[in-house]
Write a protein that binds this DNA or RNA. Structure first.
Length: 272
DNA sequence: ATGCCTTATTTCATAAGA
């Protein structure tokens, strides 16, 4: 079974490349993030044509996740129990009515595919450590931990894949000095990942295919990809029962090349 | 000090990403 995760940065803009990549890589289960469209507007027919069932969870311009599977797609969860939404800044009067404030965003979709409980996750960015978006990011991880802990009580085969928006170690960014004071590398964010691993989840680190670091994201600007100025922020966190089945894991950096790529590359994991 | 690039949308400008 071949499992993959890919932040596509708009499924609509990326559709030709996504369909081409599905045909070449032939994954059985795919976790997508940043589909940047609504559930209703997900290009389901085009993906069905290639033999995949689809569970999409999108709410418009930002965020959005999906699961594709050719090995069954059961017990779909849109979001997870207790998932928080962005609460805004804590201080100050609320002068305008903002109905979306506090509502969970489209950042998680889970399903059972080929006997594995699979989650496609898109963690909040956090913006800056002083931002309310950063507090939201940490809250979201804490709630995710609780939700996964509940599933792990009865589901040994689980893989939580996606864009975690945290580089687990300094070795997971191209230059740690550049990230001093930034999100994605702060101790509380890394502690949030450690708490997930403490549930029994293993970081399935992919082979980089080129260069020393298995980066999965490179900024579009300033030729970052060519210089390998990247970050490892897309992760596959798998239970021991799944991790022990891994025969190969790699970053498909070929998908980051050429015209019109996502700024993230897919991670591909083969399971016996 | 900021943008560098790309996306979708309330589009010829903005917000967000990381």
């Amino acid at each position: 079974m071949r499992l993959a995760t890919w932040n596509v940065n708009s499924v609509k803009a990326r559709l030709p490349r996504l369909l081409g990549w599905l045909g070449e890589a032939k994954p059985d289960v795919v976790c997508l993030q940043e589909i940047k469209t609504t559930t209703a507007l997900f290009p389901e027919a085009e993906v069905n044509e290639l033999g995949y069932e689809v569970a999409a969870h999108g709410d418009g311009r930002w965020n959005g996740v999906a699961l594709l599977s050719s090995v069954g797609l059961e017990d779909v969860s849109l979001g997870f129990p207790g998932e928080p939404g962005y609460q805004g800044e804590a201080a100050g009067p609320t002068l305008i009515d903002e109905p979306s404030l506090g509502r969970p965003e489209a950042r998680a979709v889970g399903a059972t595919c080929g006997g594995i409980r699979v989650w496609s996750l898109y963690a909040p960015n956090g913006r800056t450590p002083e931002s309310a978006h950063y507090a939201y990011k940490l809250d979201w991880f804490a709630a995710l931990r609780t939700a996964l802990a509940a599933e792990l009580e009865h589901q040994p085969q689980l893989a939580a894949c996606g864009d975690y928006n945290v580089a687990p170690t300094d070795d997971d960014v191209w230059d740690p000095a550049v990230f001093v004071g930034s999100t994605h590398v702060t101790p509380p964010e890394r502690e949030a990942l450690a708490r997930l691993r403490a549930l029994g989840l293993r970081d399935v680190v992919p082979a980089p295919m080129k260069g020393p670091h298995p980066f999965t994201y490179w900024d579009y600007r300033a030729g970052a990809f060519a210089k390998d100025y990247g970050m490892r922020i897309d992760l596959v966190y798998a239970t021991e029962a799944v991790a022990s089945r891994v025969t190969r894991a790699y970053v498909d950096r070929e998908a980051r090349k050429g015209k019109g790529p996502s700024d993230h590359a897919p991670i591909v994991v083969d399971l016996s």
